[in-house]
Design a protein around this nucleic acid. Sequence first.
DNA 1: CTGAATCCAGGGGGATACTG
DNA 2: CAGTATCCCCCTGGATTCAG
Lengths: 146, 146
Amino acid sequence: MSLTHTGVTAGPAELDPCGQPEHPDCGIRDLLDRVGDTWSVFVIVELANGPRRFGELQRAIDGISQRMLTLTVRRLERDGLVTRTVYATVPAQVDYRLTETGASLTHLVKALADWSLAHREVIADARSAYDAQHPDNVMRRGQSSS
Amino acid sequence: MSLTHTGVTAGPAELDPCGQPEHPDCGIRDLLDRVGDTWSVFVIVELANGPRRFGELQRAIDGISQRMLTLTVRRLERDGLVTRTVYATVPAQVDYRLTETGASLTHLVKALADWSLAHREVIADARSAYDAQHPDNVMRRGQSSS
DNA sequence: CTGAATCCAGGGGGATACTG
DNA sequence: CAGTATCCCCCTGGATTCAG
């Protein structure tokens, strides 16, 4: 139980599931990197609905470039989250689908999405409040700052 | 599911902060950004064990720079996940603690950590296998392939 | 002690053009 | 259709310095 926050009392500092770049026994960093990059989650979500071809993925995921779709899908494949199948048809055809491991990730993604939805307003409010109190602050990431 | 993309056709294709323009599931992009950045999760994990002062956080989170700790903590504060309390002591003292919202994120982080742990070997294997089959591939992060 | 400011390298990711 | 190859911008994040 490293992450349960039963009471906010300064304890023996038994946190730290792993973490810090030096701990080799972590692995969470990899997941965070994958889940944190711009497109992986969307690819996973799309594939959660069934196998998809390259073009289907690109059309489904608005805004993704060929390059990024390729890279994203390659990384997912390398991590064993997605399988890539090439059919020797004339106009080359490839489909991608989640592996079991990849599919198990969808639960996490779902949890993340649920959390986002549940807390989105609170967060938006917090941001507005913060921004109001810090008008000269330049923390708006990807947001309009006029 | 809350993450389904639905149509997403045409449109000016202007990228939103969320990556998925004109869609209500945008809130997830924020979470992914936060969870995906290098330090936020570690700060949250540390704070899950109780309030921490700036220096305590920095010492606890190995490798983080002052700058990044400041930025990370500011972002978390802006999102209402962390509260910052300044004590007017002589050698300035500040403590950070999770808000309720922030604390609720702890469960998610725990889930992510659990998943990482549970699948890390499978993933490591998948990577080895992939790298073995693609020796000329440049996906290995932090490595040169020339 | 807690930060802000500045400088700077590396990588992520977009746009575009070309190939099998 | 399914990529690959280039160019290039910008953001992340480290190091260092200055300040309250």
